[in-house]
Write a protein that binds this DNA or RNA. Structure first.
Lengths: 181, 181
DNA sequence: CTTAATTTTCAGAAAATACTGAAACTACAA
DNA sequence: TTGTAGTTTCAGTATTTTCTGAAAATTAAG
C-alpha cells in the first residue's frame, strides 16, 4: 500500500527535474542579457543546483552541447574560480562542482570583475589624465577634470566593492543598510 | 611677438584632440569588454568630454560611422537617460549632450540596470522557488534553498543599490567607507 | 501644395562570437 | 609497448550582433 507515496515521489522528482531545466534555461537567457556567454551561464546554473559533481559528458548530455563547447566553458568557469574540478580516487574522469555559497560567489565575481574590467578602465583614465594635465586652455582643463572625476569614481567603487568582499561576514551589508536610511 | 604662445596653444589644442580621440577609442574597447556596444560607448565618451552639444552629423564624422549607426545608438543612449537631445531655437537640427555628473551617471545606470537586468532575474528565481516549494525529498529542498538564497541575495543587492542611488549626496559613500574597516 | 532639411527605418553586408565534431594529445594500466 | 579512457585543441560552420547606405517618412518653411 505504499503505492501512493512512491507515485508522489516520482511525480515530485519529475517536477524537480523540470524546474531545474527551466532554471537552467532562464538563467542562460539572463546571463546572456548580462553579457555573459549563454552556455557558460547554463553550465553554472546546472552545477549550482545539482547535489553532486558532474562530468563533462553528463553536462554535454544534459544541455545538449558539444564536447568542445562544454570543455571550454568549464575551463572558463574554473578560471573564474566559480567551479572546481574534483577527482575521485580510483577514477580517471574529472568531475566538476560549483561554489554554492551565494556570498562567496559574489566575492569571487567581484574580485574577478575588478581585476578584468575595472583595473584596465582605471589604467586608461590614468593615462588620459596624465597626458592632459599640463595642457593650457579652458577646454583642456574641463577635459582633464572630467577624466579625473571618472577616475576618482571608479577608484572609489573599486575600493568599496573590495572592502565589502573582504569583510568575511555577509551580515555586514544588512547591518550597513540601516545607515542608508 | 606673440608667436610662441599661439604655437603653444595650437600644439595644446592638437594634443587635446588627440587625447580625446584616444579616450574615445579606449572607452569603446572597455565598454565592449563590459558587454556594451562599442559604438554606444564611444559616442558616450565623446559626448561627456565635449564642451558643446553635437549633431548626429558631427558624431558621424568624428567617429567615422554611418548615419544609421549613429542614430540608433544615440536613441539608445537617450532611452537610458544618459544623453539628452537639445533643440536650439531657430535651428532644425537636433543636438545631443550627455549628463556629465559622474554621480548622476551612476544613479541613472544603476536604476536602468536594476530595471532591465536585476528585476527579470528576480522574477525567474521567484517563479522557480514557487514551483518547488511544495516538492518532497531532500533534493527538492536543497534546490529550493539554493534558489531562495540567490533570490534573497539579489533582492538585497537591488535594495542596497537603490538606496545608495537614492541618497542624493555622493558623500555618503566615502563616509560609509569608514565603517567598512 | 511644394521643396528642402532632417530624422527614421530597414534589407542586406560585414564582423564578431559561439559551437561542432573530429583529430591530436595525454596519462595510465596491462 | 600497446590499448584505452579521457582531455584538449582547432579548423570550419553556424549564429548573433553590429553596421552601412539608401530609400521612406517626417517636419518646417515658403
Amino acid at each position: 500500500m505504499n503505492q501512493k507515496p512512491t507515485d508522489a515521489n516520482q511525480a515530485d522528482r519529475a517536477a524537480l527535474v523540470q524546474a531545474r531545466d527551466e532554471f537552467v534555461t532562464q538563467w542562460g537567457a539572463i546571463g546572456n542579457a548580462w553579457g555573459i556567454n549563454r552556455t557558460m551561464a547554463q553550465i553554472h546554473a546546472l552545477l549550482i543546483t545539482t547535489p553532486v559533481p558532474l562530468t563533462t559528458d553528463e553536462i554535454m548530455e544534459d544541455l545538449k552541447i558539444s564536447r568542445g563547447n562544454a570543455h571550454g566553458n568549464l575551463r572558463d568557469l574554473v578560471s573564474w574560480g566559480l567551479v572546481r574540478s574534483v577527482v575521485r580516487k580510483g577514477e580517471r574522469k574529472e568531475y566538476f562542482e560549483a561554489e554554492k555559497d551565494v556570498w562567496k560567489m559574489f566575492c569571487i565575481i567581484s574580485r574577478e570583475r575588478r581585476r578584468r574590467e575595472l583595473r584596465p578602465a582605471m589604467g586608461v583614465l590614468q593615462e588620459c589624465a596624465e597626458r592632459t594635465k599640463n595642457l593650457k586652455g579652458p577646454e583642456a582643463a574641463a577635459f582633464n577634470d572630467q577624466i579625473r572625476a571618472l577616475s576618482d569614481f571608479l577608484k572609489m567603487a573599486d575600493d568599496v566593492v573590495s572592502k565589502i568582499s573582504a569583510s568575511q561576514q555577509s551580515s555586514i551589508i544588512p547591518w550597513a543598510m540601516k545607515f542608508l536610511k
